[in-house]
């Protein structure tokens, strides 16, 4: 075969594979949206869930998902940032560092049920935190940390070493070079990592069943005292998230409209993830512009 033909075949195969991936994705999202969106209404988004009657909403579950995400990021981002900076910039290139990196990768491939049960025993039972958003956030941090750390590390490493040399040759300390030059240049990559891990947090169910719980007790959205039992901000209250709700409605739901609720919830979940992506990119772009160019 001559090279031109080979090239055409290869291009064709690659196009075919891309079309396949896009088609699967489009079909999946399309199906969820087509079956789910008709069930989404203002009432659906703003009313509490019903256990036995039709017409329940997902107000609390939706809020819980977002709140849990925020809490998880608050816990995991600073840790991941520190670890990522250490691994990318300070860690000596030797076997010990390699072991640390491998360990992080192993942590990221642990089954979520295992992490969930572990956190159930340690935090929920031993440390008496009960089924709570906080327990859930800690469990999700376990998933999030490896992903985020790895991502921040590679984002930092992908910044050209020329930039490091430029900073150091200008008399900047290593720390100042990292925080003033390398980190700003790595912001877009780090944002992508946050988005990926957020998707995982939104979608996670197995680990949360044992940690954040499966119930959404009454909460008062006007009570801003985070120590109050009824406050929506109380991190120690049980909190069923959207993903858990979908699982629960499907597996043991006895409401007459269980199907509609799970379809609607799935569509909401996807839309929220999409909105979060757009929002994070927007924030990331603004942050990047602010940190890199003066105006």
């Amino acid at each position: 075969m001559n090279p031109k033909v080979v090239n055409k075949i290869a291009t064709g195969v690659i196009y075919g594979l891309v079309i396949l991936v896009v088609a699967i994705l489009a079909a999946l999202i399309g199906y969820i949206l087509v079956t789910g969106v008709p069930h989404i209404s203002w009432h659906f988004l703003t009313s509490p869930a019903q256990s036995f009657l039709a017409g329940g909403g997902i107000r609390d579950q939706l809020f819980n998902s977002i709140y849990l995400l925020v809490l998880t990021l608050i816990i995991s981002f600073p840790i991941a940032l520190g670890a990522g900076i250490y691994l990318a910039e300070y860690a000596p290139k030797n076997w010990f560092t390699e072991i640390i990196k491998t360990t992080i990768e192993v942590l990221s491939s642990l089954p979520s049920v295992v992490v969930g049960l572990f956190c159930y025993l340690l935090f929920v039972v031993q440390m008496r935190m009960g089924f709570s958003i906080l327990s859930g956030a800690i469990a999700l941090t376990f998933f999030n940390l490896p992903l985020l750390t790895r991502n921040i590390e590679t984002s930092l490493e992908s910044v050209s070493s020329l930039q490091r040399e430029a900073g150091l040759s200008l008399g900047l300390s290593q720390w100042k070079t990292i925080t003033g030059i390398i980190l700003p240049a790595a912001v877009p990559g780090i944002i992508t990592g946050i988005i990926l891990s957020a998707g995982r947090v939104f979608g996670e169910a197995a680990a949360l069943i044992y940690t954040a719980g499966q119930s959404a007790p009454f909460v008062d959205y006007t009570n801003w005292n985070i120590f109050s039992d009824t406050s929506f901000l109380n991190p120690l209250r049980p909190a069923e998230t959207l993903a858990v709700h979908i699982w629960k409605v499907n597996s043991e739901g006895i409401t007459p409209d269980a199907n509609a609720i799970s379809s609607g919830s799935s569509a909401v979940l996807i839309i929220v993830i999409l909105l979060f992506n757009i929002f994070a990119h927007w924030i990331g772009n603004r942050l990047y512009k602010k940190m890199t160019s003066s105006k």
Partner: peptide, 16 residues
């Protein structure tokens, strides 16, 4: 001071 083989301005504005 040092100037390198590859131009390596920081990803900031000229002024900065």
């Amino acid at each position: 001071g040092m100037v390198f083989q590859q131009p390596n301005p920081f990803p900031f504005s000229v002024y900065d």
